[in-house]
Structures are given as structure tokens and as C-alpha cells.
């Protein structure tokens, strides 16, 4: 039998542009996933403006600010790692990616202490203090835990994603010419950052 005819536009050929478009479309779904929560936040804050203000005083602005800067830094390092790999500096790229994962860890540790403090005060949904909170404030804390929790889950997924790419760059499966996996992990990571950019003022900076 002859080799079968292969179309120039075959779906079985690696296509970096398809991967990138696919990743962007996936990011849109992530945005709208959080979007639903932002709508809940918007409505409940409009209905309970004072309660949201009072409740937000429980959150620590310094901690939130530090975490914002941590995530921004990690966004820069992952973006730089792409530049490094494209310029053929594999080792530098690896260090920059590891720095990104390290930043993710720092973010999670700070988040852990913040959550821990709230849980200590019994502010987690279902706990005693939480149940006796005045109307509206409990909604604030529910949304706080739900939204930052979902965001933290994305931080973890993003860090694992980047860790996988680190291994692939190490074994030269991802290179300057075949970089789309690294680019996609970067896009995902930036999305995690963008969502935090909104979460930060909405929860920490109500004044």
C-alpha cells in the first residue's frame, strides 16, 4: 500500500498557533468561571455596603500587598524565562522558572497564615463566630474563602504546570523552537496574576 496522502492543513501536525489559541480560549473559560463569583460579589456588596466594609477590616493590607508583589514578580520571571529560552539561554530559563515556582510557594505560605488566622477567629463558613456574624458580613467571608480558595487552587495548578515544563525544558523536549508549552504555562500563570489583581482591591482595600 502507498503512504497515505497527507493534507497540508492536517490536524495531526504540531501547530504552535493552534496551541496558543486553544490556551487563550481556555483562559476565557477561566475568566468567566471567576466572573460568576465576581457578579455575586458585586450584587452582595451593593446590597450590604457597610457590612462588607466592616468585614474587610479583618483582612491584613500588608499581607495582601506583599502577596500582590510576590505574584507580580513571578509573572515577570516566567515572562523572562520565555525570552531566555528563545535566546538559547536554557540554564537561565530554568532558574527563572524555578523562581516562579518558588514565588508560588511563598504566596501559598502567606495565604496559609492569613487563612489560619481567620479560621482561628472562627470565621470559616459553618464555624461558631461565622454563624453569629451580622447579615452581610458572613457573605463577605464566604466569598473571601470561596474566591481566594479557588484562586489558590489555580496557583497550585499553575505551579505544577510550570514544574512539568521545567522537566521538559531540562530534557530538551521544550526548546526555543518548540516553546509553545512554556508559553502556554506562562499565559496560564499571568491569568492567575490578573485574577489576583482584582481580588486584592475588592477584598483588602475597601475603605
Amino acid at each position: 500500500m502507498m503512504e497515505h496522502f497527507v493534507l497540508p492543513n492536517s490536524g495531526h501536525v504540531r501547530d504552535a498557533e493552534s496551541n496558543k489559541l486553544g490556551m487563550w480560549l481556555f483562559l476565557f473559560t477561566e475568566l468567566l468561571l471567576f466572573g460568576g463569583l465576581f457578579i455575586v460579589y458585586l450584587v452582595y456588596r451593593a446590597l450590604n455596603p457597610d457590612a462588607f466594609l466592616l468585614a474587610s477590616f479583618e483582612l491584613s493590607i500588608p499581607m495582601g500587598t506583599i502577596n500582590t508583589v510576590v505574584l507580580l514578580t513571578s509573572s515577570m520571571t516566567i515572562a523572562m524565562s520565555i525570552t531566555a529560552l528563545q535566546k538559547g539561554k536554557k540554564e537561565l530559563a530554568l532558574y527563572l522558572m524555578m523562581a516562579t515556582v518558588a514565588a508560588a510557594l511563598i504566596f501559598m505560605v502567606i495565604k496559609f497564615f492569613e487563612w489560619n488566622a481567620k479560621i482561628h477567629h472562627g470565621l470559616f463558613p459553618g464555624m461558631e463566630t461565622y454563624s453569629s456574624l451580622p447579615a452581610g458580613e458572613s457573605l463577605f467571608f464566604f466569598l473571601y474563602f470561596f474566591m481566594t480558595g479557588l484562586h489558590a487552587l489555580h496557583v497550585i495548578i499553575g505551579a505544577i504546570f510550570i514544574a512539568v515544563v521545567i522537566a521538559k525544558v531540562g530534557s530538551d523536549k521544550v526548546t526555543g523552537e518548540r516553546i509553545s508549552l512554556l508559553e502556554n504555562s506562562g499565559l496560564y500563570w499571568h491569568l492567575v496574576d490578573v485574577i489576583w489583581i482584582y481580588l486584592f482591591p475588592l477584598f483588602y482595600l475597601i475603605h
Binding site: 497540508p8 504552535a16 523572562m80 525570552t83 528563545q86 535566546k87
Partner: peptide, 13 residues
Amino acid sequence: MKENEIQHITSFR
């Protein structure tokens, strides 16, 4: 399809 499209490299700066 177009594996060898020219990529723009953003500078570190």
C-alpha cells in the same frame, strides 16, 4: 502548520 513563523522576542529590559 506554520512551525517556523518568525517569533517576536520581548527583551528582558
